[in-house]
Structures are given as C-alpha cells and as structure tokens.
C-alpha cells in the first residue's frame, strides 16, 4: 500500500466531512420515511360517512403468515350500522409481536380497511401491550400504546417520530 493510497482514502473521508450529514438527530428530529414503508397498521373509515371500512371478513387473518390477526364479526344493527356492509368486526386484534410487517393483510383486504402505516415506535414493557385492538388501530389514534400512555401521564400531545408522507392507501391518516 502506497502513501498515495492512504492519501486517497483520507481524501474520501475529508470530502464527507463537508457534506450535509444523512443521519437524523432522532428522536429530537422526525424521520423522513418513504411512502411505501410498512409500519403499524391502521383500520380505516369511509371519510364521508364515518362508517368503518372493515366488514369483519377475516380474509386478512387468513392471509397472515404469522397468525397475528384475530377477527370476530357481528351483524350490523341496520339502524345504527358500524360498517358499510352487513357485518362488522366486533373484535379486531393484531399481535404486534407476531407481525412481520409483510403487508399481506393489506393485500388481502377486499375493502382497503387494514393498511400498514408509517409508525414504527412500538416498544413496550409487557407482552399484553402488544395486542392492538380496534381502539388502538382505528384511524385517528396516533402513536403506540406506550406513547399514548406517556403522553396522557404528562398531559401532552402524542409525539411520534415520523413525518407525514402522503400515500393514497392511508386515507384519513394524519401523523402531524
């Protein structure tokens, strides 16, 4: 190895010293995520009618390779429907510890109800806190269970480390 080679290497290093860094000061700064990133799921609603898109068909659970989803359906009350179909999901649960974020559930869903979003900060303390039910997954709920617990404790807004990047499947989801 010649001195010249060493100088060349140092040159590369020096060059980078003056470039704009790619690292983000996470968690102080929010991360810039690509639109097709697959983070935790959202259950969506029809924006105009506020009815749930999910019809409790269990196809997502059937498609899931990790057996992470559990659905129990119920018949809609025609006078006060929950979803736009005949049936809705009375129980909808995803076990985030089992989930491998493959997106097959989103692929299988006939109504576009379950969509993988951009949130990824799911760390928590107890196993049971990784089971996300309808309350946690429903569009409009921001943050992981832990983030929301913390925010409630400190009486602050939930602050997640993701910037909003538009993706048309994430109808109604807002990370700001």
């Amino acid at each position: 190895m010649s001195v010249l080679d060493i100088a060349k290497g140092m040159g590369v290093t020096l060059g980078h010293l003056f470039k704009k860094p790619v690292t983000v000061l996470y968690p102080e700064e929010k991360v810039d995520i690509k639109p097709r990133f697959r983070g935790r799921h959202h259950l969506l609603k029809h924006p105009d009618s506020d009815l749930e898109k999910c019809i409790g068909c269990s196809l997502c659970a059937a498609a899931c390779p990790a057996y992470a989803i559990y659905v129990e359906a119920e018949e809609n009350d025609p006078n006060d429907p929950t979803s736009a179909g005949e049936r809705y999901a009375k129980i909808y649960e995803i076990n985030m510890l089992r989930c491998i974020f493959c997106g097959l559930c989103e692929e299988a869903c006939p109504t576009g109800a379950i969509v993988l979003g951009h949130e990824f900060e799911l760390a928590d303390f107890r196993y049971q806190d990784f089971i996300y039910g309808k309350d946690e997954l429903m569009v409009g709920v921001k943050g992981s269970k832990w983030q929301r617990r913390e925010a409630a404790k400190k009486n602050k807004e939930v602050n997640i480390g993701v910037k909003s990047v538009p993706r048309k499947e994430l109808e109604g989801v807002n990370y700001d």
């Binding site: 409790g56 068909c57 269990s58 659970a61 059937a62 129990e72 359906a73 119920e74 018949e75 005949e86 049936r87």
Partner: peptide, 9 residues
C-alpha cells in the same frame, strides 16, 4: 351461526 366465523376458521 350468522357471522360467527368463516368456514376455514
């Protein structure tokens, strides 16, 4: 058994 489960479940 209306809407109690899908046949494969």
């Amino acid at each position: 058994s209306r809407f109690k489960g899908r046949n494969w479940e």
